[in-house]
């Protein structure tokens, strides 16, 4: 029947029309969560090379010079900073702090994530 809730409607979370900042905060947090979970497990696996000895690890280090890998790393950094700061927004608002400013807290998370990513971009490409 039309108009009723359904689990499939979670796809509607990605519809940007008519959204308030809080919804954006939620959606971006979810997307970064999924990306970071994937990265986490890959990262843990790759670090196993440390146990295999210096040559194995050196191979991996050589990979990190690849610009595509660097950009991937920067995406991870941006994602963690945003996700972490939004999480702090949730913690604060859940205890009554900053509820009236929750949208501004979201904007601040985005800005700081961009700033952090830029800092490491400079570090990784020009440091």
């Amino acid at each position: 029947m039309n108009n009723q809730p359904s689990a499939k409607k979670f796809l509607g979370w990605f519809n940007p029309l008519g959204r308030n900042p809080g919804s954006w905060a939620f959606i971006i947090s979810r997307i970064t969560a999924l990306g970071l979970t994937l990265y986490l497990f890959l990262h843990l696996i790759v670090l196993g090379r440390l146990a295999q000895g210096p040559e194995a690890y050196q191979e991996f280090l050589a990979l990190t010079e690849n610009p595509v890998v660097k950009i991937g790393e920067l995406a991870v950094i941006g994602a963690v900073i945003y996700h972490g700061l939004n999480g702090i927004r949730i913690v604060l608002t859940s205890f009554g702090i900053g509820v009236t400013r929750q949208a501004q807290l979201f904007y601040a998370s985005i800005v700081l994530a961009i700033v952090g990513t830029l800092v490491f971009t400079i570090r990784m490409f020009a440091g």
């Binding site: 210096p54 050196q58 280090l61």
Partner: peptide
């Protein structure tokens, strides 16, 4: 390393 990453020995 030049980019500040750790080598095996560093780790």
């Amino acid at each position: 390393t030049a980019s500040g990453l750790m080598t095996y020995d560093d780790v």
